[in-house]
């Protein structure tokens, strides 16, 4: 095992970052082990589940399949960079409040993929949302509440009112 460390510079959540790490590490490992950002999760390490998704130059990628070295000079966004200070991203609000996050373990990955989708398509229909999210696995929700949260956040971002899903308003006076 080589002791030589790699050293890269890149943009992480809007700020310039420098980090040294063992060169065989994936971006997922670098983020967690060398930069202390624990929001990006291990799910399968084989690119099967989407749990470790981050945005690189605005595109969703699986950080378990990308070498840390390849982040040199790129613009990387992890879940920690999604909110604007204490102001949550509209998707984070709807995920938290309308049942899209249950155990929460897959949520960072889904949130970033959804952010990418809404940037490209501010008014996606249900089928488009399904397709965009189909690389991410969730075992808790059956996905329905995730679609609803994306639809609701999209409406809010467009400045439109949207009726909350039936279940979400159930029981309110």
């Amino acid at each position: 095992m080589g002791k030589q460390k790699a050293h890269i510079q890149f943009v992480l959540n809007g700020e310039t970052a420098e980090v040294a790490f063992a060169p065989h590490k994936t971006l997922l490992e670098v983020l967690r082990e060398d930069l202390g950002l624990m929001g990006t999760k291990h799910g399968c390490e084989l690119g099967e589940c989407g749990t470790c998704t981050v945005l690189v130059n605005g595109r969703s990628i699986l950080s378990c399949l990308m070498l840390g070295l390849d982040a040199e000079g790129q613009d990387v966004k992890s879940i920690e960079g999604m909110a604007n200070g204490s102001q949550l991203h509209p998707l984070q609000e709807t995920f938290a409040d309308t049942g899209a996050a249950q155990c929460g373990y897959c949520s960072p990955g889904f949130l970033l993929v959804a952010e990418e989708l809404l940037k490209k398509n501010p008014n996606p229909n249900r089928e488009t949302i399904k397709e965009a999210l189909s690389g991410n696995l969730c075992r808790c929700t059956g996905y329905i509440k995730i679609y609803e949260a994306v639809e609701l956040a999209a409406a809010r971002m467009r400045g439109e009112e949207m009726e909350l899903p039936r279940a979400s308003v159930y029981g309110l006076e």
Binding site: L88, F95, G99, G104, V169
Partner: peptide
């Protein structure tokens, strides 16, 4: 009771602040 009160630890989970054992 009977109302959809938001999940108590929801904010932690959507910001990456919830700490699972590997974290």
């Amino acid at each position: 009771i009977g109302k959809s009160v938001p999940r108590k630890e929801g904010r932690k989970k959507v910001t990456g602040q919830a700490l699972y054992v590997d974290d």
